[in-house]
C-alpha cells in the first residue's frame, strides 16, 4: 500500500533532516517517494501506477507519497519547485530524482536499474 508521509513520519522512516547533516536513509527497503498535489494534472497519471507497483513489489520496495500542499516543510527541504517530482532511494546511495510523470514501464525500468 502506498503510504502518505508527514514531516514527522518522514523523519522516522526516511531521513531525519533535523538531526543529520549527511544523507542517511533510515529504511530497510529501497523506496520511491512521490511529491504531488491534488491540483496537479500529471500527478494524477502517476498515482494509480504507484498503487499497482506497491502491490507488485510488496516486500521489495516501499512507496511513499508526500502532499506538497500540506507538507510544505518537506517540499522546501527537498527544494521541490515542480511536481510531480519522484525520488528513487536505493540502499547505501544518494537519492535520484525525476521530474514529471513517468509511465509504468519507466518506473519498472528505474526500479530494476536503481533500486533492486
Amino acid at each position: 500500500m502506498v503510504e502518505n508521509l508527514t514531516a514527522e513520519t518522514f523523519r522516522e522512516k526516511v531521513f531525519d533532516y533535523k538531526n543529520e547533516k549527511e544523507w542517511k536513509y533510515r529504511g530497510e527497503l529501497p523506496c520511491i517517494i512521490d511529491f504531488y498535489a491534488d491540483w496537479c494534472g500529471p500527478c494524477k497519471m502517476v498515482s494509480p501506477i504507484l498503487d499497482e507497483l506497491s502491490e507488485e513489489y510488496t516486500g521489495k520496495i516501499k512507496i511513499y507519497k508526500i502532499n506538497t500542499e500540506t507538507e510544505k516543510e518537506l517540499a522546501s527541504v527537498f527544494q521541490i519547485m515542480s511536481i510531480p517530482t519522484i525520488l528513487f532511494i536505493a540502499l547505501g546511495k544518494d537519492p535520484q530524482g525525476v521530474r514529471g510523470a513517468l509511465p509504468k514501464s519507466e518506473f519498472e525500468k528505474k526500479i530494476k536499474e536503481w533500486l533492486l
Binding site: 496537479c40 519547485m81 521530474r99
Partner: peptide
C-alpha cells in the same frame, strides 16, 4: 533551470512561488 524555477506548467507549479 527547467524544474529549478523555470516551468511550463503554471497549474502544476504556481503554488511553489
Amino acid at each position: 533551470f527547467m524544474g529549478r524555477g523555470v516551468s511550463t506548467c503554471a497549474t502544476c507549479d504556481a503554488a511553489f512561488f
